[in-house]
């Protein structure tokens, strides 16, 4: 029998720490796409709330906390990250397992917005993009989910096939910001 080796999306590439900003890989226990059926949004949200203690987030928002989060990721679509979703929710929403389809990173440190500003057109000013805010946008040329989970902490999700490119882009941006800081 062939012995298969399980690898994380960014296996061997992380962690990185440059100029006080760290990039680490997160490996959620599960990622499930939840798309409420037409007119079933409230019922899906109520059921999710009773099962996992968090409602379906509104656009550009997330609910829950580290380890069990619901993140708005597009029109009529929510990702439940960290905890499995009970099959009973399928009464109200289309569920698809996305667990191995995404690479998830944590970018953390003072001035973390300066790093992301080199890669995404989003306004990440902390007065505008607050903790719990989430956005579907671009990271370089990659479609990404960007989520602020703390004062100086972001979670970034990209398609798993883009993991190496995402790490490269983020590392390049981190080095560029560090180089500018060195000139001050």
């Amino acid at each position: 029998m062939v012995k298969l080796v399980e690898k994380t999306p960014a296996e061997g590439l992380l962690p990185l720490e440059i100029n006080g900003i760290s990039l680490t890989e997160l490996v959620p226990a599960a990622i499930t796409s939840l798309m409420p059926f037409d007119g079933q949004e409230a019922a899906a949200s109520a059921l999710l709330s009773s099962l996992l203690g968090m409602e379906c987030p509104h656009p550009n928002r997330s609910t829950g906390r580290d380890g069990a989060r619901a993140v708005w990721v597009g029109r009529g679509q929510i990702f439940v990250v960290g905890k499995a979703v009970d099959a009973s929710v399928a009464r109200h929403a289309a569920l698809t397992d996305q667990s191995d389809a995404w690479a998830v990173f944590s970018l953390q440190g003072h001035g973390v917005e300066d790093v992301l500003a080199r890669l995404t057109p989003l306004d990440l000013n902390r007065a505008v993009f607050k903790r719990g805010h989430a956005a579907r946008s671009l990271l370089g040329h990659m479609s990404a989910v960007i989520l602020r989970t703390g004062e100086n902490t972001f979670e970034i999700m990209v398609f798993r096939s883009m993991a190496r490119t995402a790490v490269h882009e983020l590392e390049t941006a981190m080095r560029a910001v560090a180089a500018r800081d060195a000139l001050r």
Binding site: P59, N60, R75, P121, D123, A135, R136, S137
Partner: peptide, 11 residues
């Protein structure tokens, strides 16, 4: 209407 003010490169 969902995401807010966004850059044209996203469209």
């Amino acid at each position: 209407p969902l995401c807010g003010d966004r850059d044209s490169r996203e469209f």
